[in-house]
Write a protein that binds this DNA or RNA. Sequence first.
DNA 1: CTAAAAGCTGAATCCTAAG
DNA 2: GCTTAGGATTCAGCTTTTA
Lengths: 376, 376
Amino acid sequence: MSSVVSLAEISRAARPLNWLDSIIKGDCVAALNALPDNSVDVVFADPPYNLQLGGMLHRPDQSLVDAVDDDWDQFASFEAYDAFTRAWLLACRRVLKPTGTLWVIGSYHNIFRVGAILQDLHFWILNDIIRRKTNPMPNFKGRRFQNAHETLIWATPNAKAKGYTFNYEAMKAANDDVQMRSDWLFPICSGNERLKGDDGKKVHPTQKPEALLARILMASTKPGDVVLDPFFGSGTTGAVAKRLGRHFVGIEREQDYIDAAAERIAAVEPLGKATLSVMTGKKAEPRVAFNTLIESGLIKPGAVLTDAKRRYSAVVRADGTLASGGEAGSIHRLGAKVQGHDACNGWTFWHFEEGSSLKPIDELRSVIRNDLAKLN
Amino acid sequence: MSSVVSLAEISRAARPLNWLDSIIKGDCVAALNALPDNSVDVVFADPPYNLQLGGMLHRPDQSLVDAVDDDWDQFASFEAYDAFTRAWLLACRRVLKPTGTLWVIGSYHNIFRVGAILQDLHFWILNDIIRRKTNPMPNFKGRRFQNAHETLIWATPNAKAKGYTFNYEAMKAANDDVQMRSDWLFPICSGNERLKGDDGKKVHPTQKPEALLARILMASTKPGDVVLDPFFGSGTTGAVAKRLGRHFVGIEREQDYIDAAAERIAAVEPLGKATLSVMTGKKAEPRVAFNTLIESGLIKPGAVLTDAKRRYSAVVRADGTLASGGEAGSIHRLGAKVQGHDACNGWTFWHFEEGSSLKPIDELRSVIRNDLAKLN
DNA sequence: CTAAAAGCTGAATCCTAAG
DNA sequence: GCTTAGGATTCAGCTTTTA
């Protein structure tokens, strides 16, 4: 898995070719044009934001902010940025299946232009999603509100496209049995997750957190689907797709990013089939979940939970449900089921191992709640 | 306070006219064109969202959702909506002071178009703000994420406008002493706050919560400022402006909305002056020169100052400069120089000995400022 | 050794009055 | 218009150093 393919190779080869699970080196639009029609289930795009930064910015302690001033984020004008945006969006639509959807992420610098062009091209917006950051960079000069979020747009290729994938039940179960909202909260990508070179410096200036991609793919794809990222960067989309049993295609111009992404993806261990099964609706086993803990890394998919006396055990799945003895469901339903009860508070029933002792998962929820409380 | 003025009256009258704290009946652009240049401190605009709703929507219990399908929300095309948007934005810019700012609120149906046009017209975006709703309407069909937010854009009339009002200190203090973020959480407008007619039905379909307007006005205006709302509706902007000691101007076409707004605003009791005073930071303090400390005898020529960790030291000279190792300059320049920085706040960097402890010379400046305050 | 303190950093359109 | 200089300004999370 995860080979690197040159644009020339794709163009030469008879289609279909082995471009799945590979990184295509080259210009985004040219590479897209080399791919077959209707071949991709979801596009996730993290295009340049066109930040238009002025001079240097210092923190109050006089240290210099390491700004995003790379060449790839420079555009001569809004017109140039708009033309670029139209080109890659049109190229993406051709390779998208009629039932596919497209995600774009951006900030106020570019997202309004992207959104308006999406509408002009007759894409159909399903949602705008707010990626709230728990730990954004402050506004050092006190002249604006702290810019604490980014915006995602989720759209179908046209207004009449109805067959797109949205794992509504799984999202709802993963959100304590209420439907998933349009405002999502994640930490920025830092710590061990952040790729660093031999010099200790970040490999890519804008690496996205895996938790964000995990929610996007769990919401809008099924296992085996093909996910295309036309601005692959350090390969977060590929890493999460592989882990979640989805195919990926990445397009990237810079060899340094390609090298880092290929190595990163090669190290990813895919999750097992049982962990990946996605809830399909009311016909599926009644389930609930708790995936903020999963997305935050407090509990990992595949982890085993037990009750306080270790009479029962269950495995955590990636969509935020539990599985045990052929049964699956939310923490509440499965807790009830294994005990033969009608109801159960999964938060206090299920425990995790810490050292040699067992603790209720409710303690982990408190951790999250404390974080949330700080934001309100 | 709060009279209703016809467009004809304004046009006939010699300016300046008593259009403050009144509702102007008429078309938004025509009414704006009747107002003088550079006369408004803040515009708050809640334009039609151009919702493009298809058929009727029913809840799972088959009850009908009361959608926004009013005539004023219907546009023939994106082009028509864009032309309308350009027209009112340009008209607003003319009446805005150079130091003024503009707020617009919208949803994914229209905000991307509004934002892109703002940029095309060379407005300069300061922030996009997310209004998170604690109690948004669910997605009844389970085909999308619950649309739980709206987006505001805050902008200056052009990129070079620097003198706008942002009550940073007040916002920070109101937010548990950490700077205010771009994601705001409010309940939707309901209960007693929601205006209802004699028939018990809501007066306006998109009435905004007063808490939202209060935060906007507390952040970006001073008492006595003029706030213009070109889509006045049920008059939330006017009610909050009056309560907070700001002037308002509302523009509205529909007589029913005007009547409801006028009655509502008349019932508002303004807060007292003491309640309205805005918290300010050091930026607003009178300037005190370092020389003043020497002249007043608080610091004597020849005294030795150090940084908080005694890593650097300097001698006070009679002319109000510091000297250290052959270098000399203002407290700021020399502080920067000894640290190898471009800039430095000498008031907080340099310390003097008091007993056995070190104190920043900023404390001596406070002494002077307190004396000055007694003279006023 | 642990605990506390200090240091570092993140998609940033980040000052303003006086001369 | 310009330049110059006074001096105001940061949150959370992780890592490294010091006590």
